[in-house]
């Protein structure tokens, strides 16, 4: 990759990605409101929330919590940056998991039962979706012969045609990661569900909550970029795929109730992992 193009991508990650993530979050809240037959907040609502939270008085239960919040944001931004620069997919997904681990450690560092139970649920979620991500990387290597993200652009046909089942099994992973129903066990960012108060983010307030919010925007952009990898040969196809995923997740969020964690583990491992394993085995045996 040439030097100016790399610089452009770095700038886009720092300046453009939060704007896109924030607008997508606003759009999602608007769509949810319309599905429920109400007007809903303006499209720019997430930015008001962020500015307001940033200017509230900082209040932390302990100092280490602050470190973990910054680590969470740092790893989230790094994983998006590495992805856009076309780096090693295996490494990127490790960095991405580190971001979640930082949030979990922050939640566990506080003596609050809500935050602790939320963190434990987040650990279960991590255990649930991580095997699918590993299988995704294996399947990716099987098709492209490389772990580099940049490799996907030079394929003759999109990954979607060779890895359709892996893409389907990625749907529950996506839902878990963006904390949407039916898998919004650990916390929900903008919803008034009040089980466990706010779960893992209960003890964060003011600017620290703003950082978590910002990290969630980066996360959304990263996950959508990961979906568009399945049609990386053509950017229109990639965008279309990401848009379909985004609206599917929003609709699923509205029509499903929250499930228990044991149901989630069973379902995601049986159906999601099953589909991914079938796809990978098919690649090995018949290709």
């Amino acid at each position: 990759m040439s030097y100016p193009a790399g610089l452009g991508i770095i700038l886009a990650t720092f300046l453009l990605a939060p704007v896109v993530g924030g607008l997508l979050t606003g759009l999602e809240r608007k769509v949810i409101a319309r599905l429920q037959g109400r007007v809903g907040p303006p499209l720019t609502q997430p930015f008001y929330d962020l500015v307001k939270l940033w200017h509230k008085r900082p209040q932390a239960a302990n100092r280490i919590q602050i470190v973990y919040v910054y680590a969470h944001l740092f790893f989230m931004v790094t994983s998006l940056l590495a992805f856009l620069l076309g780096q090693d997919l295996l490494l990127i997904l490790f960095i991405f998991s580190f971001a979640t681990v930082a949030l979990i450690l922050g939640g566990l560092s506080v003596d609050s039962p809500y935050s602790r139970i939320g963190s434990q649920r987040e650990i279960i979620q991590l255990v649930t979706y991580e095997p699918i991500l590993v299988l995704l990387v294996i399947a990716y290597y099987q098709v492209t012969g490389s772990f580099m993200v940049s490799q996907a652009r030079s394929l003759e046909q999109p990954l979607l045609f060779t890895l359709p089942l892996v893409l389907i099994s990625f749907l529950p992973v996506f839902i878990i990661k963006v904390r949407k129903s039916p898998f919004d066990l650990a916390t929900q960012l903008h919803e008034p569900h009040q089980e466990l108060v706010k779960g893992i983010i209960t003890e964060y307030s003011g600017p620290y909550l703003a950082l978590i919010e910002l990290a969630s925007w980066y996360e959304l952009v990263f996950l959508l970029a990961l979906v568009s990898l399945f049609w990386a040969t053509n950017w229109v196809g990639g965008l279309l795929l990401a848009a379909i995923f985004f609206f599917a997740v929003t609709v699923i969020d509205n029509i499903t109730p929250r499930v228990t964690y044991s149901w989630m583990v069973k379902f995601v491992w049986k159906v999601g992992l099953g589909l991914a394993v079938v796809n990978v085995a098919w690649l090995y045996l018949w290709k």
Partner: peptide, 19 residues
Amino acid sequence: TPLYDLERFGMLNTGNPKH
């Protein structure tokens, strides 16, 4: 509720004093 829809003013019922 959707009939009065406080969220159109950006209001959310957080249920958490810290937020």
